[in-house]
Write a protein that binds this DNA or RNA. Structure first.
Length: 838
DNA sequence: AGCACGCCGACT
DNA sequence: GTCGGCGTGCTC
């Protein structure tokens, strides 16, 4: 009878926090179980131990001798990331041809360092002294005592035994010592005591001093005694010499600072002790506290650190009978209304799922949306007997790690967060909600360039749970999903049409167009100026949205039309009046404002394209005495007076929307809407419409008048709002238009970016990539370009762009595979589902 | 990402 | 001669 040959153990696929694909490792020595997908492991990496995440297993490869994983940090019963989440994220990474480590580095903000006590010893009978003078012996020793490269060499020989024990989370505090424990030296003091009777006769003054000491003593110094007794120093000296007083060693009473510490309890720092004591009237400097510590009045001890403070849930009233009218489908949506009404509509569904003991994940694109979601939803958890946690970059490492453990342990089942929350190990998840699914802020700008809703959809599918989109207005991509729609908030819109001829009869057929915006008032139209004056007269508040920060989009020579350009990028430099600087908003390059035109020597400049500085200046001229608050990347004025209800005008960029609307807001104006439309991007009008909807729901109760100054007054993204059409009117039309144009959701796009320091090299490589794609069967419909990027030179490099347009994810993945077939002579990067700039 | 390696032009 | 810029390859 022959035993079936044991199948060769399958190597594990492990990702590290580096932009490289998953690597193969064999299981740790003696590992018997299944591959622990979703668990963290310690692996040898370039001579050191690093943390990796097990994402799967692979085929054994013959020739290559794999390194063994050293230690598994989590148990498969309680993994760091749920295996289904691992599967969903890896499926996205594989289709997008993004190295797995890149996306995991973006999604896991916590857990990449192992906090263990690492001890090592030589395996029994091994003599490691040949490796190095200082090598592990048969005794367990802290691994820090040896060079990592030495340990790695010994480990590779299989001669090292290692132990990893969890390190208790402690902190050091300063604690008052028990009086009995204070060293005698610290308490030793000598005091002058009267000797009674005096052994020798004393002079009258000496007798007086002696009597004083016996009545009011003891005293610690001679001079102090003399002063207190009202005699000169020589008198008390005489008493001492005559034997009428003597120094006696005794225990000093504990100093007041010790008493304070004993009563107030342990302190984190010396200065904390000093300031705490001083606040209670016990004078103590940090140096003096240090001296007391050194003398032994206090000692430092390790105590278990308390859990870090986490954001507190906002209590919510719950109407238990509220019906759940939301769809039951793998993908569904809820749009319209205001943020608060959307969350109220969603509440019954969340309560039901939490009530079943399951988990819900809510993903927000930005801080402002996260804050509103926290206010609207976090209170639900308490009604379902669980806890809500926030998980975003705003938390520090300790808070994030603690939050992760609360989720992993099943204590928190409602998670509201950013991209850092997507892989959170919610036990038994039931629903993923993506807020404002069309927001560009879901796009990670670095690393993987992932669009979070795309990965969220993959993760939801892997868990076989629904994905819901929730926002002011749907993205064209989610229009076809089954959904619920709330009526949009009332929008009062006044459009200033810069393209229309003036209402008054004009002199000739050309003059209307010619006069145009000059006649209507620019950059603040006469209509807007009149409304702003009303706001000031009535003591109300207004917000003006300018298209850019700084003073102007560019400076132009009135004589030769020359415009100062960035040295690194092919864009005009923005003018900032406050600093008199010319700044590139692409790369940050800046120089001082030139005195004269480089080209013709002209000394005057003409500013074009108003920014926040310019608009703020115009408002200042228009409304003398009205407070103006600026809000952009360059300057954020404190808004407290506005929130207290005082009159004022906010002037800012889109950054305005990340703050709450002030209470008396009566007017919102977009000074030039066309900036949102004059972008060569098929999503520009959707973005513009979303901005308008977000502005009209910005104030939680009121409907401030929305003034839009534009050359495209009849753009449907705007007119549907003015006409009071329903939430879906514009997005549905946009979705139909996308179908005709072959854009998402009716196609999947990827941008291939090819960059090199020399334009020619980038261009040649781009051409080669395109040819390789055609050779692999791509059609002219599927490959667009290559073309130089819209900004032909960026930060000194020349990007070339190639667009891939495929009918679905599978075909896109097929096309992207071609990029891996060989290496290119320039840097090639893929951006799946690109946003902004096409 | 980092980091080592190797190639080529600019200098003591 | 070698110093240092920069492109290329590698991490199991």
């Amino acid at each position: 009878m022959t035993a079936a040959p044991a199948p060769a153990p399958r190597p594990w696929l492990v990702v590290v926090n580096l932009p490289v694909p998953a690597q193969d490792f064999s299981a740790p020595h003696g590992w018997t179980g299944e591959t622990p997908v979703g668990c963290r492991v310690l692996i040898p990496w370039r001579g050191e131990l690093v943390v990796g995440l097990v994402v799967g297993e692979t085929e054994p490869r013959g020739a290559y001798r794999l390194r063994e994983a050293v230690h598994v940090l989590d148990t498969p019963i309680c993994p760091w990331v749920l295996p289904a989440t691992v599967a969903g994220v890896c499926a996205w990474a594989s289709d997008a041809h993004i190295p797995a480590g890149l996306i995991w580095g973006d999604l896991l903000g916590v857990g990449w360092t192992a906090d263990s006590i690492h001890t090592v010893r030589a395996v029994e009978g091994a003599d490691l002294s040949a490796f190095a003078r200082k090598a592990p012996t048969a005794l367990w020793t802290d691994a820090g005592a040896f060079h990592p490269a030495l340990l790695d060499a010994v480990r590779e020989q299989g001669l090292l035994e290692e132990r990893f024990d969890p390190r208790p989370r402690t902190k050091t505090v300063i604690r008052a010592r028990e009086l009995a424990g204070v060293p005698a030296a610290a308490r030793a003091m000598t005091a002058l005591h009267a000797v009674i009777p005096a052994p020798a006769p004393l002079t009258p003054r000496q007798t007086h001093a002696h009597a004083w000491l016996s009545d009011y003593g003891p005293h610690d110094t001679l001079s102090g005694w003399a002063k207190a007794a009202g005699v000169s120093g020589s008198v008390v000296n005489g008493v001492l010499n005559a034997g009428g007083a003597q120094y006696v060693a005794e225990l000093a009473p504990p100093p007041p600072a010790w008493q304070w510490l004993n009563e107030a309890g342990p302190q984190d720092t010396l200065s904390g002790w000093a300031s705490g004591a001083s606040a209670d009237g016990v004078s103590l400097s940090p140096t003096a506290a240090g001296t007391l510590l050194a003398r032994g009045w206090a000692d430092t001890v390790q105590v278990l650190a308390p859990p870090p403070a986490l954001p507190e849930a906002v209590p919510t009233e719950v109407n238990g009978d509220l019906p759940d009218r939301l769809p039951e489908a793998p993908l569904w949506r809820l749009h319209g209304g205001r943020a608060a009404s959307r969350f109220r509509t969603l509440a019954p569904r969340i309560l039901r799922l939490l009530g079943q003991g399951r988990g819900v994940l809510v993903l927000a694109p930005d801080h402002a949306t996260l804050r509103r979601a926290w206010e609207g939803l976090s209170g639900l958890a308490a009604h379902a007997g669980t806890r809500a946690v926030q998980l975003s970059g705003q938390l520090n490492d300790i808070q994030r790690a603690h939050t992760w453990e609360l989720i992993r342990g099943g204590e928190a089942r409602l998670v509201i967060g950013s991209s850092h929350a997507l892989a959170a190990p919610l036990q038994d998840p039931a629903l993923i909600v993506v807020l404002e699914e069309g927001s560009d802020a879901h796009k990670l700008l670095s690393g993987s360039r992932a669009f979070i809703p795309d990965i969220a959809a993959r993760v939801a599918a892997a868990h076989d749970i629904p994905l819901a989109a929730l926002g002011a207005t749907p993205a064209a991509e989610s229009v076809p999903w089954p959904g619920a729609v709330l009526p949009p908030p009332r929008a009062r819109v006044h459009i200033v049409d810069y393209a229309a001829p003036p209402e008054q009869p004009t002199l000739g057929p050309l003059s209307g167009a010619h006069l145009g915006m000059g006649d209507l008032g620019y950059p603040i139209s006469h209509d807007l100026a009149r409304l702003l004056r009303q706001v000031q007269e009535r003591g109300r508040q207004a917000a003006l949205l300018a298209p850019r920060r700084g003073y102007s989009a560019l400076l132009r020579c009135p004589n030769c039309e020359h415009t100062p350009q960035c040295r690194n990028c092919d864009v005009p430099l923005r003018f900032h009046q406050a600093t008199r600087q010319m700044t590139c908003h692409q790369c940050g390059y800046h120089e001082s404002m030139p005195d004269r035109c480089d080209n013709c020597g002209e000394q005057m400049w003409k500013a074009r394209g108003p920014g926040t500085e310019w608009i703020a200046q115009e408002v200042g001229k228009l409304l003398p005495g009205m407070p103006i608050y600026r809000m952009d990347r360059d300057r954020q004025d404190p808004l407290a007076p506005l929130y207290a209800g005082e009159p004022g005008v906010m002037v800012g960029t889109q950054l305005l929307l990340s703050h709450d609307a002030p209470p008396n807001l009566a007017l919102i104006a977009i000074t030039l809407a066309d900036t949102w439309l004059n972008v060569s991007d098929f999503r520009a009008s959707e973005r513009y419409h979303r901005l308008l909807r977000q502005l009209s729901e910005w104030h939680p109760a009121r409907a401030p008048l929305l003034v839009v100054q534009t050359f495209q007054a009849d753009h449907p993204a705007l007119t549907v709002l003015a006409a009071g059409r329903d939430t879906l009117a514009y997005p549905a039309a946009e979705e139909r238009a996308r179908k005709d144009l072959g854009y998402p959701p009716h196609a999947r796009l990827a941008q291939v970016e090819i960059t090199a320091r020399e334009a020619l090299r980038a261009q040649t490589a781009a051409q080669e990539v395109a040819e390789a794609l055609y050779a692999a069967g791509a059609t002219a419909q599927e490959v667009l370009g290559p073309a130089p990027s819209p900004v032909a030179r960026l930060r000194g490099v020349y990007p070339y762009h190639l667009f891939l347009r495929a009918r679905n994810d599978a075909r896109l993945s097929e096309l992207l595979k071609v990029l891996d077939t060989r290496t290119w002579k320039a840097r090639v990067r893929v951006d799946v589902n690109p946003r902004g700039g096409m």
